[in-house]
Structures are given as structure tokens and as C-alpha cells.
């Protein structure tokens, strides 16, 4: 069976800027594929080309076996899109939004209303059904958005930063919904800025920077490539930082990053025991530690490890 998504050398420029600069992707059917990167890395532009909203300038893309340019209509019959801006009509009620889509997709008369109610119930939106969407909270809006995407269960669903700006509870709800979708056989392409989100949901991840795929693999492979964990240390005395940096670098055999906080440093560690030893070494050498934590690498750290540079301001602002 052909893959759900297959792109070769996909390119899109806006003026002089190459937003997407030769992206190759292979997404297996029935999986969740995470596309990870900072704002402006080219994630949304890639999704828009795959969802037939933008015409690629170069390269090719096939979605569920159909070319996104020459067979766009066949692609549209099999996908649905939940965009970064909520793709629902704020000036209509939740119920009207779903009836509108149901009719546009071919449900007739009362069946459109029935489908809308079924979805409102499934997404816990029955009480808010008659209210204008502009009065919805972020979490409710996102649930409605996803409900709108499954009026007809799609073979492939694009989710562009589905949890950006949501509170932890709403975020967990969205994750549960995505898991249910996948369990029913839908393939999901998930764009996100959050490593933990990709980690929770994705079977494979592509890391994108400056419009290029800079790393690809399972979450485990990716994390292994940047060191399993990151040790964050905060010193009592900022004046000890240079000494601490030297000691940690020697003890852990890895580059130590100085953080914005003048008393803090961080370092990737492959194994927790060595981290404990290095911390003990700080104590023995008379560098008092105010606190430390051992955690999963952040996206910043993945970036640092993969590209040798932190996400630039430009990338964050773009």
C-alpha cells in the first residue's frame, strides 16, 4: 500500500524567502507523524501544500496516492484540516458550524442536523451548541474544530499546532481525541512546537528548521541523539558558574550551556548515575548547589544538539 504522505524535494518560496526548502517526508498509513519545529520553520507552509491550499514551487507531493496539484480534488475527498487559526466560523453557533459542514459534505436535510448533534455530544459541546463560537473558550473552540474535521471521518487528518494556547486539561482532551482517531484508522500529521506533544502522540517525528528536515526518526531515536536527559543546575553563587561549568563538562564529558539566569547551567546527560556523580563532585569542590533537576530535553535543546544553534529570534518571531 502506498504511504499516506510522500514528498520529494518540496519547495515553496515567498518572495526571496524559501519557507520550505526541499522537504522529503514518508508517512506510513495509520500512524501519527509529528512535524516538530519552531515558528517559521516551514511547518504550516508544508501542511498547506499537502492540504492543497498552496501550490508547491518545486518538488512533488502525493497524499494517499494522489498528486496534490494534479489530483487535488481526490486528495480533498480524503483529508481534513484543523488549521492553526481555528478553522471554524466564529460568527455562527457551534451547531450551525457543524450543520454547515455536514451539508457541504453531502448530508441532506435532517441528516445534517443529526450528524451535528451526534458530534456535539461526542465532544461534550451539547450545552454550548446554540452559542456563537466567538464566545467559546480556547479548548471548546479546538474541540469544535476537530469535530468539524470528522463530520466525515477522514483517511488523513492535518493538525496544525492543536494545543498551542490551551490549558493542560484541554490539551489532554485533545490528545485523547487524537488517540481515538488513530485507533479508528485515521492517519494524523501533527505539527507542533512541543517535543512532549510529539513524544506523547507521534510514532515518528521529523524536525524541521529553515524549511528543511534536519532529523527524522522515532521519538526515542531523536531523544537519544541529543542525550537522554538534560541536567539543569542552579548555583547558590553566580560567581561559581565558570568553575561549575568546567567540573560538569569534565564529569559528564559533554558541552555545558550557560542559561539566561546567571546562576544556572544545563548539560545533556546520557545516564542518570553519571549526573549524580557530577553533582556530588560539585559539592566536593566547594561549589554549593541551590537546586537541580533532571528532565527530558526541551525543543530548544533538541535544536541545539541538532543544528548547533538555538532557535534564532527571527525563527521565533516569524
Amino acid at each position: 500500500m502506498e504511504p499516506a504522505i510522500e514528498t520529494t524535494g518540496l519547495v515553496k518560496s515567498f518572495g526571496d524567502a524559501r519557507a520550505v526548502d526541499g522537504v522529503d517526508l514518508q508517512v506510513a498509513r495509520g500512524s501519527v507523524y509529528g512535524v516538530l519545529g519552531p515558528n517559521g520553520a516551514g511547518k504550516t507552509t508544508t501542511i498547506r501544500m499537502l492540504a492543497t491550499l498552496l501550490r508547491p514551487d518545486g518538488g512533488s507531493a502525493r497524499v494517499l496516492g494522489y498528486d496534490v496539484v494534479t489530483e487535488a480534488d481526490a486528495v480533498r475527498e480524503r483529508i481534513s484540516l484543523t488549521g492553526q487559526l481555528a478553522s471554524v466560523d466564529e460568527e455562527l453557533t457551534g451547531h450551525e458550524n457543524l450543520v454547515l459542514l455536514a451539508r457541504l459534505l453531502g448530508y441532506k436535510g435532517k441528516r445534517a442536523g443529526g450528524r451535528a448533534e451526534e458530534l456535539l455530544t461526542a465532544f461534550g459541546l451539547t450545552e454550548a451548541a446554540g452559542r456563537l463560537v466567538k464566545h467559546y473558550s480556547g479548548g471548546m473552540r479546538r474541540r469544535l474544530d476537530i469535530a468539524a474535521s470528522i463530520v466525515v471521518t477522514p483517511e488523513l487528518m492535518f493538525l496544525d499546532e492543536p494545543t498551542t494556547g490551551l490549558d493542560p486539561r484541554s490539551r489532554n482532551q485533545v490528545w485523547d481525541i487524537v488517540r481515538a482517531l488513530v485507533a479508528q484508522g485515521t492517519t494524523v500529521l501533527l505539527c507542533t512546537q512541543y517535543l512532549d506533544e510529539a513524544d506523547q502522540l507521534a510514532d515518528r517525528i521529523a524536525v524541521i528548521d529553515h524549511g528543511r528536515v534536519i532529523a527524522e526518526g522515532t521519538p526515542g531515536q531523536l531523544k537519544a541523539s541529543v542525550g537522554q536527559n538534560t541536567l539543569h543546575v542552579r548555583l547558590v553563587e553566580p560567581g561559581h558558574r565558570a568553575e561549575a561549568r568546567r567540573l560538569l563538562a569534565r564529569g559528564l564529558d559533554a558541552p555545558v550551556q550557560l542559561e539566561g539566569d546567571p546562576a544556572a547551567l544545563s548539560v545533556s546527560v546520557a545516564d542518570a548515575e553519571r549526573a549524580a556523580e557530577a553533582l556530588a563532585e560539585l559539592g566536593r569542590e566547594g561549589v554549593p548547589v541551590a537546586g537541580f533537576s533532571l528532565g527530558q530535553p526541551s525543543l530548544d535543546e533538541v535544536f541545539l544538539a541538532l543544528t548547533g544553534h538555538a532557535p534564532t529570534e527571527e525563527e521565533i518571531a516569524a
Binding site: E118, L125, E127, T153, Q173, D176, A180, Q184
Partner: peptide, 14 residues
């Protein structure tokens, strides 16, 4: 927010 009902969700997807 009313919780998303897994059963209803699966039914709606099916």
C-alpha cells in the same frame, strides 16, 4: 467543559 465521551466519540467516528 464536559468531558469528551470516548464511547460517543468512537460511535461518531464509526
Amino acid at each position: 467543559s464536559a468531558p469528551v465521551s470516548e464511547e460517543a466519540l468512537n460511535a461518531a467516528l464509526a
